[in-house]
């Protein structure tokens, strides 16, 4: 089997805009799920509301497309009702960190055995490009027409502080690394959080002067810095530009977990 066998081909092509990074993230996640050798009957995909959250609708397994921000609450319920199921949650930055922020920290705290893939496009895509809690300072959106003035959430730091067992961040350019990170997350008992920075050419890209889809992906590629490299630079006393973000595996530990398959 390959990842393509997990798609509901009758529903393709999906509704995402041309070049939307969400499609790439679905491919990589399914590739990791496929490598785990799980069967479709015992795998459930859960999501909230948003462009990113439409993902489970294109996958040939049982799925829950729930209310905005509540994906983790539903996923917790599914996992506790039947720990034998493998649960993967797709969520967006607005879904996870804005309206769903509390569910997020408490799912991390409980360290419940699910894997969360967050497609962070740094904007509300579905509702027309409003600023989200992860919109970087200075970036334009419909609600921040002069540039966002608020500091953004670092979702990975948040997950680590709240107690997740596995945390990693990659981008839609780093497909192989991201696939490996999702697989590591699926293998880790307890809460695994994998963030993918993705391009949203329609709202984020267009407002922030990325003319082509490839321009925004190039930006993600050139502004990502591995944690080890960042640490080396800091040791040497060099300054890291503010617009760089850290990628790589950020936490892997063994806190007591909930809902682990016996």
């Amino acid at each position: 089997m390959t990842f393509e066998d997990w798609f509901r081909v009758d529903r393709l092509p999906h509704i995402y805009c041309a070049g939307c990074g969400n499609g790439t993230v679905i491919n990589c996640t399914l590739a990791a799920v496929d490598e785990m050798g799980w069967n479709k009957k015992e795998t459930v995909f859960v999501s909230g509301i948003g462009c990113s959250s439409r993902a489970p609708g294109y996958i040939m397994t049982d799925s829950l497309h729930t209310t905005h921000g509540r994906a983790l609450a539903f996923a917790t319920g599914v996992k506790l009702a039947n720990p034998a199921l493998n649960i993967v949650v797709f969520t967006g930055d607005g879904d996870l960190a804005a309206i769903g922020g509390n569910h997020f920290i408490h799912a991390c705290r409980r360290n419940i055995d699910i894997t969360v893939v967050c497609m962070n496009n740094q904007i509300y895509g579905m509702t027309g490009g409003q600023g989200s809690p992860t919109t970087p300072i200075g970036c334009l959106s419909t609600t921040t027409p002069y540039g966002s003035a608020e500091p953004a959430f670092d979702l990975c730091e948040l997950a680590i502080a709240a107690g997740a067992n596995y945390v990693a961040r990659w981008t839609s350019y780093h497909v192989k690394e991201f696939e490996r990170a999702v697989k590591a997350g699926l293998e880790t008992p307890g809460f695994s959080f994998i963030e993918a920075l993705v391009q949203c050419p329609t709202y984020f890209g267009r407002r922030n002067k990325f003319k082509e889809v490839t321009d925004q992906v190039e930006y993600l590629k050139t502004h990502a810095i591995l944690r080890a490299k960042r640490d080396r630079l800091i040791e040497k006393g060099e300054r890291i530009p503010d617009d760089m973000f850290i990628i790589g595996e950020l936490a892997r530990r063994n806190r007591p977990a909930m809902g682990v398959k016996l």
Binding site: E4, P13, A18, G19, N22, G23, N27, V175, K176
Partner: peptide, 17 residues
């Protein structure tokens, strides 16, 4: 097995085979 395959994983619209 699939070698490389980066284009297929990257293609957001599952168009490469």
């Amino acid at each position: 097995r699939t070698l490389c395959g980066v284009c297929q994983l990257t293609c957001p619209d599952q168009a490469i085979h």
